[in-house]
Amino acid sequence: MKKIDFPQGTLEMLTLRVLFSGANHGFGIAQQIHVLSKEVLTVEEGSLYPALHRMQERGWIKSEWGRTENNRRAKYYQLTTIGRKRLGTEQESWETLATAISDVLGSRP
C-alpha cells in the first residue's frame, strides 16, 4: 500500500478527533483511525508519537499512566480544554485545505 502523505496537521486533527470520543493510548488511537477510515489510513508510530509529543508540548493533550484491558501498563492521552477548542480550529483548517486542493485539482486549464 502506498504511503499516504497527509497535509501537515491532519494527523493532529484526527488524533484530537479520536480523543474527543474518549481517552486512549497511542496504539489505540492508531487503531481507531485505521478502523474508522475503513483501513485506508494507516498511522505509523514514527509519525504518531512525534505528533503526540508535539501536541503535549503545546498543551492540547495530557497523558497519564494506566492499565489496559490486558492489565498492561500504557500511557493514556486525553484532550485538555485547549485541545478541545483546538479541534474545532483544526477541523476548519482541514476543510479549507481539502477544498483548496480539490479546486486546484479540478480546475479547468
Binding site: 486533527m13 474527543f20 481507531q32 474508522l36 485506508v40 489510513l41 481539502a98 486542493i101
Partner: peptide, 19 residues
C-alpha cells in the same frame, strides 16, 4: 495521485464524522 487524494480525503472525513 488524484485518485489517491480522493481516497485519503474521503477517509479522513469518515473518521471525522464517526469518531
Amino acid at each position: 495521485e488524484k485518485k489517491h487524494w480522493q481516497d485519503v480525503s474521503n477517509a479522513v472525513n469518515l473518521v471525522l464524522r464517526q469518531a
